[in-house]
C-alpha cells in the first residue's frame, strides 16, 4: 500500500515548469529521499503533496486521499516540517506545542499531555521562548510540532539545512526514532549524506523531473564499481602512476595535480589494488596514500544531473 502516490505531477508558472511530470510511489513505513539541487522542484513537490499548492496537472494521493479534492482529510494525516523552523519564536516550546495541539482539535487536557510527551521525547524542556533555542533545538521543536497528531505520513523539507554537524546528527536521530515507530517519511535534501543515512529509496530530481530512482546502493552502483585512489608523493610521478592505474582500471582515469591524486574505477578491488601496488613499487613510485572506496552519492548525483545522458 502506498503512503504517497504521485502520477505525472506538474506545476507551471506561466511558461516555466517547476515540476514537469513527477511520479512517486512511497510504500508505507519507508523513508523516501528527494534529492536534487536548488530549484530542482523538490519543495514544489512537497508543497503540492501537503495541500499548500495546487498542481497544474497530474494527480497525487497522500494516505489514500486525493490532495486536490480531499485536502482536509490529507491535512489530518500529515505532518509538515518546512525549510524554516515554523514555530512561534516568542512562545516557549510548550506553548507552541499546546497551541498546535489545540489547532489540531485536541482538547486542552489532551494538548497539554501531548505537548509534555513530545517535549520529553525530543529533549526540549527549556523554560524560555523558542528564540533562545539553538538551531538544532528549534528544528526538533518544529519536528515535534509536525508530530502532534502522530500522523502516518511526515514531510520533511530540507530538515537540516543550515544546521551544524552536531545539530544535524540530533535531528537525524529524532527522524530515525519516528521511522522505527512506522511513520512514512518523505524527505527532501541537498545533502547526499543525509539521503544516504536516512532514506530507504532515493528519487533524484533535476529540472522538475525524476532522473533516477533506487536504493542508495543501487544508485551508487550505477556509476560503476569502486574507485581506486592513489596519492603520489612526487608530482613528477603523476603521469606514470596514471598509466599504471589506467592499465587495470575499467574506465577513464582522473588526475589531480594540486592534490597529487590519481583515481580510476576498478571492478575487482583486491586484485586491482595488489597489481597497482606492485607496479608502482617496480616503477619506483612512492605512494603517500592508497584507498579503494565506494563512490559517494555526490558522485552519483553529479553524474546523473550533469552527464547530459539522462536528460532528454
Amino acid at each position: 500500500m502506498s503512503a504517497v502516490l504521485a502520477q505525472g505531477l506538474r506545476k507551471s508558472y506561466g511558461e516555466k515548469a517547476a515540476l514537469d511530470g513527477i511520479d512517486l510511489d512511497v510504500r508505507r513505513g519507508t523513508v523516501r529521499g528527494l534529492l536534487g539541487p536548488n530549484g530542482a522542484g523538490k519543495s514544489t513537490a512537497v508543497r503540492i503533496l501537503t495541500t499548500l499548492l495546487r498542481p497544474s496537472g497530474g494527480r497525487a494521493e497522500v494516505a489514500g486521499f486525493d490532495v486536490t479534492t480531499q485536502p482536509r482529510q490529507v491535512r489530518r494525516n500529515i505532518g509538515l516540517v518546512g525549510q524554516h523552523a515554523a514555530v512561534d519564536e516568542l512562545l516557549t516550546g510548550r506553548q507552541n506545542l499546546e497551541l498546535f495541539g489545540r489547532l489540531c482539535h485536541l482538547s486542552a487536557v489532551q494538548s497539554r499531555s501531548r505537548a509534555a510527551e513530545l517535549l520529553e521525547r525530543f529533549g526540549l524542556e527549556h523554560p524560555g521562548p523558542a528564540k533562545e533555542y539553538s538551531g538544532g533545538m528549534r528544528r526538533r521543536l518544529d519536528l515535534a510540532a509536525g508530530m502532534i497528531l502522530a500522523p502516518p505520513v511526515l514531510f520533511l523539507d530540507e530538515p537540516t539545512t543550515g544546521l551544524d554537524p552536531r545539530s544535524r546528527a540530533e535531528v537525524w536521530r529524532s527522524v530515525r526514532e519516528l521511522v522505527s515507530d512506522g511513520t512514512t517519511v518523505l524527505l527532501t535534501t541537498q545533502y547526499l549524506e543525509e539521503a544516504d543515512q536516512l532514506a530507504d529509496r532515493v528519487s533524484v530530481i533535476d529540472a522538475g523531473r525524476v532522473v533516477a530512482e533506487g536504493t542508495p546502493d543501487e544508485l551508487k552502483s550505477r556509476i560503476g564499481g569502486d574507485q581506486l585512489d592513489v596519492v603520489v608523493r612526487d608530482p613528477e610521478h603523476l603521469e606514470r602512476a596514471a598509466e599504471i592505474i589506467g592499465g587495470v582500471a575499467s574506465g577513464p582515469v582522473e588526475l589531480d595535480r594540486d592534490t597529487r591524486h590519481v583515481r580510476g574505477p576498478v571492478n575487482e578491488r583486491v586484485r586491482s589494488l595488489t597489481e597497482v601496488l606492485t607496479a608502482l613499487a617496480a616503477a619506483g613510485i612512492e605512494a603517500e596514500d592508497v584507498a579503494v572506496r565506494r563512490p559517494t552519492l555526490d558522485e552519483v548525483f553529479l553524474n546523473l544531473t550533469e552527464a547530459g545522458g539522462v536528460r532528454p
Binding site: R75, L80, A86, L149
Partner: peptide
Amino acid sequence: SKGVTDRFRSMPMAPSA
C-alpha cells in the same frame, strides 16, 4: 515569511481561522 502561515495551512484547522 517565516513559514508559520504554511504550517497553519497544512494543519487540520479551519483555514479561515
